[in-house]
Amino acid sequence: MNRQKFIDKFVAAFFILAVIKVIGILAQLFHQSFWSVIGTLVIFIIVALIIFVVLTLLEDKEKDQSSGGGRSRAGGGNFYIESSLFDKIRSQYEDLAEKYIAEKDYKRAAKVYINLLKDYYRGARTLEDGRFYNEAAVIYLKKLKNKSDAAICYEKARQYKKAIDLYKEMEQKEKVGDLYKEINDLKNAHTYYQMVVDDYTANNQMVKASLIYRKKMEKIPEAQQILLKGWEEDKDAFNCLNNYFANIFDINELKTEIHHLYEKTPDYKKITYLEAMKYEFKKDVKLQEAARSIAYEIIAEKVASRSEIVNELKYFNPDDEVILKDISRFKTSRNKMFRN
C-alpha cells in the first residue's frame, strides 16, 4: 500500500506542476512570438501525456498486485519505481529529440535536450548542426562555460567581434589576427601577428616566426631576416638556412646568395652547409655546379679529420659510377694505412 500511496501522491503533484507549467508557458506570450510559445506548449503536452500514460500503467499494475494480496520488497520499492519511471521518461525525451532531428527541426530538438533532459552540450551541438550558431554560442558560453566552442560558433555566424573578444580572453593571438584580417582591420591584425612572431622568436622557433611574416603579414624581407638570424645564431640553423634558400625564387639570385653565405660560414657550421647543398643540388640543374663546387671544398677540408665524409660525394655525382669506385678505393687505402 505504501507504493500505491506514493503513486497517488506523485500523480497529484504531477497535475499541479503541469498546470503551473502551462500557465508559465502561456505567460511567455508577452515577450515571445505566438508560434514559438505554441510550439513549446505542444512539446510539453506531448511529454505530459507520455508521463500520464506511464503513471496510469504503474497505478493499474499496483492495484492488481494489491488486490491479489501480493507484497513486494518494501525497502527499495519506492526507489525502484522512481528509477524505472525516470528511465522511461528520459527514453521518451530521447526519442522525441531524435524525431525532431530527423525532421530537421533542430530548434525543437535542442529545446528537448536543454529544457527537459538538461543536456546542454547536446542541445548546443544540435543548434550548431542546424546552423543556429548564435544560439549555440550562448549555450556553450552561459551553460557550459566553453569559450572555445562559443568562439567557433560566433565565427561561423560571422559575429567576428564577439569571436575576437573570446579569442583574446583565451590568448589565441594568431586567431585574433586572422579574424581582424577577415574584417579587413590590417592594423590590429598585424599588431597581434607581431605578438605571435615575438613569442616564437623568444622560444627560438625562427621558422614558425618567418611563416607568420611571410604568409600572414606578407612581409618577405622580414621573414628572410629572421631566418638569417636563426642561421647565424644557431637557432634551428639547418631549417632556417633551408627555408631561407627556399624563399629565393630567382635562380641567379639564389646562386649568388649561396656563394655569399658560404663565404661567411664559420668552420664548425660547414657540415650543416653541406647538408643544405644536397637540397639545392636537387632543386635545379642550374644550381648543381655551384652546389657541387662548395660541397667539394667542404669535403676536401674535412676529409682528414672525418674520412667518412667522402661518402657525400655520391650525392653530387648520382650518375657517375667511377666516383663510387674512387670512394671505395679511398676507404680501402685509408683502412690499410691505419692497420700499418
Score class of each variant (00 low, 15 high):
residue 59 E to Y: 10
residue 126 T to N: 05
residue 301 E to K: 09
residue 227 L to K: 03
residue 217 M to I: 00
residue 218 E to H: 08
residue 129 D to S: 12
residue 229 K to Q: 14
residue 50 I to A: 11
residue 141 L to W: 03
residue 255 K to D: 14
residue 179 L to G: 03
residue 63 K to S: 10
residue 173 K to C: 04
residue 41 L to Q: 09
residue 279 Y to D: 13
residue 27 A to Y: 10
residue 5 K to Y: 03
residue 12 A to I: 13
residue 157 A to L: 04
residue 181 K to D: 11
residue 173 K to Y: 15
residue 53 V to T: 06
residue 73 R to N: 11
residue 215 K to G: 01
residue 287 L to N: 06
residue 173 K to T: 11
residue 142 K to G: 03
residue 52 F to L: 10
residue 96 L to R: 04
residue 276 A to S: 15
residue 17 L to K: 09
residue 10 F to V: 01
residue 77 G to L: 00
residue 33 S to V: 01
residue 124 A to C: 08
residue 90 R to K: 14
residue 243 N to G: 03
residue 140 Y to L: 03
residue 34 F to A: 06
residue 165 D to T: 10
residue 288 Q to W: 06
residue 22 V to H: 02
residue 199 D to S: 14
residue 27 A to I: 08
residue 82 E to N: 08
residue 35 W to K: 11
residue 262 Y to N: 03
residue 219 K to D: 07
residue 139 I to A: 05
residue 283 K to S: 08
residue 12 A to W: 01
residue 109 A to P: 01
residue 323 I to E: 03
residue 202 A to K: 12
residue 95 D to E: 14
residue 35 W to E: 15
residue 239 N to V: 01
residue 30 F to K: 11
residue 337 M to E: 09
residue 290 A to I: 10
residue 14 F to L: 01
residue 214 R to M: 04
residue 148 S to L: 08
residue 281 F to R: 09
residue 248 I to F: 04
residue 37 V to C: 13
residue 289 E to C: 04
residue 255 K to C: 07
residue 52 F to C: 05
residue 283 K to W: 01
residue 145 K to D: 13
residue 335 N to I: 15
residue 331 K to C: 00
residue 134 N to F: 06
residue 22 V to A: 07
residue 184 N to S: 07
residue 166 L to C: 04
residue 39 G to E: 10
residue 85 L to N: 08
residue 264 K to L: 11
residue 218 E to A: 06
residue 329 R to P: 00
residue 38 I to M: 15
residue 198 D to I: 00
residue 306 R to D: 10
residue 8 D to S: 09
residue 64 D to I: 11
residue 121 Y to M: 07
residue 84 S to I: 13
residue 59 E to C: 02
residue 208 K to L: 14
residue 226 I to Y: 02
residue 60 D to L: 10
residue 56 T to H: 06
residue 235 K to L: 09
residue 170 M to N: 09
residue 198 D to W: 00
residue 13 A to V: 01
residue 201 T to D: 00
residue 12 A to H: 06
residue 63 K to R: 12
residue 27 A to S: 11
residue 51 I to R: 15
residue 175 K to M: 13
residue 114 I to K: 12
residue 260 H to I: 05
residue 67 S to T: 07
residue 52 F to E: 02
residue 252 N to P: 00
residue 78 N to C: 00
residue 76 G to W: 14
residue 285 V to L: 11
residue 260 H to T: 13
residue 242 N to E: 13
residue 45 I to R: 00
residue 262 Y to I: 03
residue 321 E to P: 05
residue 239 N to P: 02
residue 174 E to Q: 15
residue 127 L to W: 06
residue 28 Q to E: 13
residue 320 D to N: 08
residue 68 G to N: 14
residue 305 S to G: 12
residue 113 Y to N: 05
residue 141 L to I: 04
residue 272 T to M: 14
residue 67 S to W: 04
residue 248 I to Q: 02
residue 163 A to K: 07
residue 303 V to L: 05
residue 55 L to W: 01
residue 49 L to N: 10
residue 91 S to W: 13
residue 248 I to V: 04
residue 178 D to Y: 03
residue 233 E to C: 02
residue 170 M to Q: 11
residue 182 E to A: 15
residue 57 L to I: 13
residue 54 V to I: 09
residue 280 E to C: 04
residue 94 E to K: 07
residue 243 N to R: 02
residue 24 G to T: 15
residue 66 S to P: 00
residue 136 A to S: 11
residue 35 W to T: 15
residue 126 T to W: 04
